[in-house]
Write a protein that binds this DNA or RNA. Structure first.
Lengths: 114, 114
DNA sequence: CATATTACCTTGTATAACATAGTAATATGC
DNA sequence: GCATATTACTATGTTATACAAGGTAATATG
């Protein structure tokens, strides 16, 4: 079902934003893995498909924002790739959050400009 | 001068967002033109280069979100291309703004998730 | 008359979200 | 025992936007 405005715009709007969401989540939870992150984002009303999330995690790892390791299940279950904030990621997150919030404030300012 | 986080991330974050800013500005001001919009955005701390703004305006016009007309100066000054919200643009803006604000709320939710 | 300012346009590049399709292991129902 | 669902990750191709860089043209100014 298509909403009134162009959905393509929304996927543009989410660029960069989703990475920030993952960083914020990993700051809260210390560590997580793709499938769980996918569910957490879903709960927060930020639906994200696998085709978006997994490449995103790989990218963030390659960029040095995340550390990752494989968790081979002791008895049962599918192996999971665990992610944590790297030292770099932890350091950059506040600056990114600030940049985001500044943009948000600017938009509110525009709305109130007479 | 490079800030601490990757500047490329910031230009990704601005995708879609800048269009929303222009829509909001044109809602406030009834009509404007590229150069003036550029200055208004600059004042709001949303620096935007010409190479971003003019293609963006053309796109929004082509998508039917904006109406445009040339203002040939009566006596002096360079011709200006004037933009206004189109009927479609005016109708879509609230839905876009809502989608944006929902995403913003979701991020704040993530930050407060324990 | 050279420079600054106003004003707009064009081309090429990099990148992220998403669609789509695939792999593989475990769990569940019949 | 076998089909289906669920958990979990990967890979490829398309599309769209921000931005850099460079260009055009008219008016104003010292």
């Amino acid at each position: 079902m298509r909403s009134e405005f162009d959905e393509k715009w929304l996927s543009q709007l989410r660029k960069g934003f989703l990475e920030l969401c993952v960083l914020v989540l990993l700051e809260q939870r210390k560590s997580s893995y793709g499938f769980e992150l996918s569910q957490l984002l879903e709960q927060a009303n930020l639906g994200i498909t696998e085709g978006t999330l997994y490449p995103l995690l790989n990218r963030m790892h390659k960029n040095g924002w995340l550390d990752s390791s494989w968790e081979t299940p002791t008895e049962k279950g599918h192996p999971r790739r665990i992610y944590k904030l790297s030292k770099t990621g932890r350091k950059q997150l506040p600056a990114m959050l600030e940049a985001y919030l500044n943009h948000h404030s600017s938009l509110l300012t525009l709305k109130e400009m007479s």
